[in-house]
Simulated assay, not measured.
Amino acid sequence: MKNTVETYTPPDTPTPIGPYNHIAKVGHLISIGGTAGFDPATGQLAGADVYTQCKQILKSFQVMLQSVNSDLDHVMHINVFLLHMSDFDEMNKAYVEMMAKHWPTRTVIGVHELPKPGVLLTMNLTAVTRMP
């Protein structure tokens, strides 16, 4: 059996800042690459704070996952890359609001810098599709 990697950048999601797609999918396994809190309608950061940027990232994840027959309840693991660990509580506040009661495994890493000015965090994830 041959596994084919399909890649996507769905409409209504932020435009990638480099030569990549947001989603890679093989069978039921989904990987979404590093995503920042940009509002896809404006191309601008959704806000200047971690709470607003985190909520926007998770909203973008919802759209991306929906495009490949999945949702936030099917996320297996999330990586969070925080520019300032002092923003951990505000990131968590938005995360709890958006993730409801589904708590996938998660890793939070402090980083020295991120590729775009004003970006305070990025996130990526691994998920599975909803079974038919």
Rank of each mutant, 00 (worst) to 15 (best):
K2Q: 11
Q62Y: 09
G47Q: 04
N3M: 13
M76C: 09
P117H: 07
D12S: 13
A94L: 04
P10Y: 08
N21Y: 15
I109G: 09
G33R: 02
Q44M: 11
C54F: 01
A94E: 02
M98N: 04
T105S: 15
K25E: 01
H28N: 03
Q53G: 05
T9N: 05
S31K: 01
F38P: 05
G110S: 13
A127R: 01
L114F: 03
N92L: 08
P16E: 11
Q56H: 07
T7M: 13
P117W: 10
G110T: 12
Y51T: 01
P115I: 07
G37R: 01
H28W: 11
L29R: 02
A24Y: 05
S86R: 08
D73S: 13
Y8D: 02
N92D: 07
I32C: 00
Q44L: 11
A24Q: 04
P19K: 15
M98E: 07
K93F: 11
S60Y: 05
K59W: 04
N3Q: 14
H112L: 12
V68L: 15
H77R: 01
R130N: 12
G34A: 12
P40A: 09
E113I: 08
I23C: 03
A100T: 09
G37D: 07
H112P: 10
F61V: 10
I109K: 14
S31F: 14
N21T: 14
T126F: 12
S86Q: 10
D71A: 13
T13K: 11
F81E: 11
M64A: 13
L65T: 03
L125E: 03
P115K: 00
V111P: 00
H84K: 12
A36V: 11
T7H: 11
P117M: 01
K101I: 13
N3Y: 12
M91Y: 02
N124R: 05
F61D: 05
K93M: 06
T4E: 13
S86V: 07
M1D: 05
S70E: 09
M76Q: 03
N69M: 08
D89I: 04
Q44C: 12
G18Q: 12
N124W: 07
L65R: 01
N21K: 15
F81L: 13
D12N: 15
M85D: 14
P117G: 00
A24D: 03
D39A: 07
N92Y: 06
L120F: 02
E6I: 08
Y51C: 00
I109S: 13
T52S: 00
V128P: 00
I57V: 14
V108N: 12
K59Y: 06
R106N: 10
S86Y: 05
E97H: 11
D71L: 09
G110I: 07
V5H: 06
G27Y: 02
T7Y: 14
D71P: 08
G27W: 03
D12W: 09
H102F: 09
V26I: 04
R106Y: 04
E113H: 08
N124I: 10
V80N: 02
E6A: 12
V75R: 00
L29D: 02
M131V: 09
V75D: 01
M64I: 05
P11Q: 15
M131P: 10
I32K: 01
G118S: 04
H28A: 01
N79M: 04
I23R: 10
T42L: 12
Y20D: 08
F61P: 00
I17N: 09
I32M: 03
T105E: 07
L45K: 01
N92H: 09
A127I: 06
L120K: 03
